[in-house]
């Protein structure tokens, strides 16, 4: 039918469950993520969307379910039952994770250049001049002046820190990047710049993303597809504009009608 589309997903989450005591944070969540696809997860605070993201990344253990990832070497790994070493290796190479607060995702005691170079060094890249050149390229890609390369991230503004965190993640050309409220703590004007940058980088590098956000405007701009979560369950999923323009579920209708204009 459409032969140029990929035949196998990059990631398949199957019936994922996660509880905290009696609180069920994720209930029977299943979905596929395709190469280059940006999936937005929306819902209000406490809906389970961040828990889902952390469970997929292996930062939280799951109670049941599978997180099947097709690696660059084309083998399938269930991250829910993979060894810590296996998972750590993937997280350093083929995966990225952008935290809401840049200080959680950066090494605040290292220079901007070292923050970008760290993942490359972990992969065995040791040539100082080359690392520095790559860091300079990436600073430019995320619109940070090259002369800031030796400065510590804490001398950066919030927006710059977030852009540095993105560079630090994308430098190893990951195949999947997970983002938890990437524009969360930023001023609106700074958000627009970051969003535009993210949109462009994601397109250029054809990287698949899962973006957790409570901001439907961010979802509209970044995501190809959305999942709406409520009380740990996916209540509706579909193409981004379908879901926002013709919401079917009562909760999605409530979410969409609660914002001024998206």
């Amino acid at each position: 039918m459409t032969p140029d589309l990929e035949q196998t997903p990059l990631l398949s989450v199957e019936l994922l469950n996660k509880s905290f005591g009696r609180q069920q944070a994720c209930r029977d969540v299943s979905f596929d993520l395709w190469p280059g696809e940006v999936l937005g997860i929306v819902g209000e605070s406490g809906s389970g969307k961040s828990t889902l993201l952390n469970a997929i990344a292996g930062r939280l253990s799951v109670d049941s379910g599978k997180v099947l990832y097709r690696t660059g070497a084309n083998s399938i790994i269930d991250l829910a039952s993979a060894s810590d070493a296996q998972r750590r290796h993937l997280m350093r190479t083929e995966w990225g994770f952008v935290q809401q607060h840049a200080r959680d995702g950066l090494r605040m005691g290292f220079s901007a250049g070292a923050n970008i170079g760290e993942r490359l060094m972990a992969l065995g890249d040791k040539h100082y001049g080359k690392l520095r050149d790559t860091a300079l390229d990436w600073l430019q890609a995320v619109e940070i002046a090259p002369e800031r390369i030796d400065d510590l991230p804490r001398t950066f503004s919030g927006g710059m820190q977030q852009r540095l965190q993105i560079a630090r993640n994308l430098v190893t050309r990951p195949r999947i990047v997970l983002m938890d409220e990437p524009t969360g703590g930023l001023d609106v004007s700074v958000q627009a710049r970051l969003l535009d940058l993210l949109r462009r980088l994601v397109q250029e590098h054809n990287v698949a993303c899962i973006v957790v956000t409570h901001d439907l405007g961010v979802a509209r701009l970044l995501a190809h597809r959305l999942m709406v979560m409520r009380r740990g369950q996916v209540v509706e999923a579909g193409l981004t504009d379908q879901l926002l323009d013709d919401p079917q579920h009562a909760y999605t209708q409530l979410l969409v009608s609660s914002v001024l204009s998206v």
Binding site: T2, L5, E37, H224, R225, G238, L239, D241, Q242, D246
Partner: peptide, 30 residues
Amino acid sequence: NYRPQSGRILIRHDGQPVDIVNAEPRVVLE
């Protein structure tokens, strides 16, 4: 952009009719 409850909308895409009402999101985007 809107989802009808029933019926089909066949779009000729690459010389083949594809039902956009029931196509998966990535096919619609394509």
